[in-house]
Amino acid sequence: MDTALRPTPGELTYRDATAADVDALVALIESAYRGDSSRAGWTTEADILEGQRTDPQGVAAVIEKAESRLLAVERDGALVACCQLEHRGDHAYFGMFAVSPVLQGAGLGKEIIAEAERTARATWDVREMHMTVINAREDLIAWYERRGYRRTGKTTPFPYGDERFGIPQRDDLAFELLVKELG
């Protein structure tokens, strides 16, 4: 697999993450979703989940998995975002999306998701992208809907009791499937 991806217009560059990136990726993902640092951005889950969002083993597994890519997104050589792409038959799965909280709201997310969609089409010739979002994250779901994703109404239970996914502060959490036709 070619690890050098084409840069999009602007200052961002994309590459496949390596084992050497694991600690920085875990720190980025945690900062975007959990704890007080996540409150600097708008994607925080701190009010609905405590504990960890991911761990080094989980990030390393995504990097090492066949038919999977974890894109590291850099600006001026610094890691500012990441996202997972995984080939799943006739579609790609998009996950582990994190943008540094201090950079959220500046349009990076729109640029990164567009590049992820282009990469999935070019790499696996898929015509659809799937993702799951916690159903209580209405603001985040609305953001994805503005990017062309549609709610399917299909949900899977949140893994209550498995602290690898965090410690829920509510008892009504589930993952909702969102889908976008890539054309």
Rank of each mutant, 00 (worst) to 15 (best):
H87M: 06
A98F: 06
E138M: 06
S100V: 00
I63P: 05
V126L: 02
E163Y: 13
V126Y: 00
F94P: 00
V62T: 13
A122M: 04
V99T: 06
I63F: 01
T152V: 06
E64K: 07
M129G: 11
C82K: 02
F94Q: 04
R150I: 14
K110V: 05
I113Q: 06
P159K: 02
V102R: 07
G166V: 08
R69N: 09
A114K: 10
V126A: 06
T156H: 15
I134F: 10
I134H: 07
V73K: 03
M131G: 04
Q52T: 14
I141N: 04
V73R: 07
A66L: 07
R75T: 10
T155D: 04
G109Q: 00
V99K: 00
A116G: 05
A60C: 05
E128Y: 10
V73F: 02
A114M: 00
G95Y: 06
V62F: 09
Q57A: 15
G161S: 11
Y160F: 13
V133E: 02
A72K: 15
R146E: 08
G89F: 07
R53M: 02
M131A: 09
C83Q: 09
E145Q: 12
G161A: 12
S100C: 03
R75K: 13
L85D: 08
G109T: 00
V59R: 11
G77I: 07
R53D: 07
A72G: 13
V126Q: 01
T54D: 06
G77P: 04
S68Q: 03
A142F: 06
V62H: 14
P157A: 15
T54W: 06
D139N: 14
R69Y: 15
G51T: 03
A142S: 10
V133K: 02
K65P: 00
D76G: 11
D55S: 10
R164L: 08
L70V: 03
I48G: 06
E111R: 15
V99Q: 00
L108S: 03
D55N: 15
A72P: 12
W143M: 05
G148D: 09
R164V: 05
E128S: 12
W143H: 08
R146A: 13
S68N: 08
I134L: 13
T152Q: 10
M129K: 04
Y144D: 06
E50K: 10
E74L: 14
F158K: 05
A120H: 04
F97R: 01
E117N: 03
T156S: 15
T156R: 15
R69H: 15
V102I: 12
E128T: 13
P168I: 11
R127C: 09
H91E: 13
F165N: 14
K154L: 15
I113S: 04
K154T: 14
T119N: 01
R164F: 12
P157C: 07
R53P: 07
R118P: 00
F165Q: 12
L108I: 08
R75C: 13
I48R: 02
V80S: 04
G148K: 06
G161N: 13
R151D: 10
W124H: 02
A122F: 06
K154N: 11
R137A: 09
L71R: 05
K110F: 01
R118W: 01
E115Y: 07
F165R: 13
F165D: 12
G107S: 05
E128D: 03
V73A: 02
V59P: 10
I141Q: 08
I48H: 05
Q52A: 14
G107M: 04
G153L: 12
D90K: 04
T155F: 11
W143L: 05
H130N: 08
